[in-house]
Amino acid sequence: MSDYRISHIAALEAEAIFIFREVAATCQRPVLLFSGGKDSIVMLHLAQKAFAPAPIPFPVMHVDTGQNFAEVIDYRDRRVAEAGVQLIVASVQDAIDRGMVVEPPDGTRNRIQTPVLLEAAEKYQFDALFGGARRDEEKARAKERVFSFRDDFGQWDPKNQRPELWNLYNGRVHPGEQIRVFPLSNWTELDVWRYIGSEDIPLPEVYFSAERQVVDRGGMLYAVNEFIKPREGEEVFYEKIRYRTVGDANLTAGVRSEATTIDEIIAEVEVTRITERGATRGDDKTSEAAMEDRKREGYF
């Protein structure tokens, strides 16, 4: 420390903390989106650090597709209780039951999360929504501002983003509009894993490798669970896998891995040749611009 240099991870942490505080100080009703996935776990951790020793001054919200890994939901509830924050659950199942959204024939609920998210934002009048998205995840995300303006319909207009200079973030909105805020914008997957390691942040077990019953779909390994049942003619076998991301249990594939500790995961991520989404997400491949299109509609 004597030469006044800090590691890049420490610089990223300082930036994220600045962003959390800036929103808390300037926005009326912020909320942190929390799914129990590793990025949102890091977000909650950073939010706690930003306001310590005071509690986090905003609630957290889970847009719950009802297609989660059970263990991740347990983790979510435990963590939220520990942090002493209010948890709001916006339920996609409930929205389907009310007829607000229609479940797609293939049963994937990723896309119908968006109207549920927007409805909840309107109901609670949230003007700033923290998300754990990182720019290294996907090419449309790589283009997005830290403070990303969304209009009355929750839409992102990639051709007309607010300029964002220095660390002078503009969080001003009219009622009905929102800012999506991404404190982890400049983090990479490896940064997140290293940070989890250096901060000793506990994670749900799905992130660690274990022998799991899987099926192979188009080269991706899906663990057999409540949502993934082997199809006609599909072979079920045992494989050591872990999850690099945790999205919906019916959409997220695991990766072959021997890593049972954070250090072992870091060592694997350091040499991996495939991006996190490429290795694990069945939902981004539909078209070249799938993510951009979903973001335009109001998705995270």
Binding site: R135, D136, K139, A142, K159, S185
Partner: peptide, 20 residues
């Protein structure tokens, strides 16, 4: 880096892309 639909259509960069 030119990841947006309109960027690819027009063959130009429209907004900043961040890479690491």
């Amino acid at each position: 880096t030119d990841g947006l639909r309109s960027e690819r259509e027009q063959g130009i960069t429209i907004d900043v892309a961040y890479r690491y």
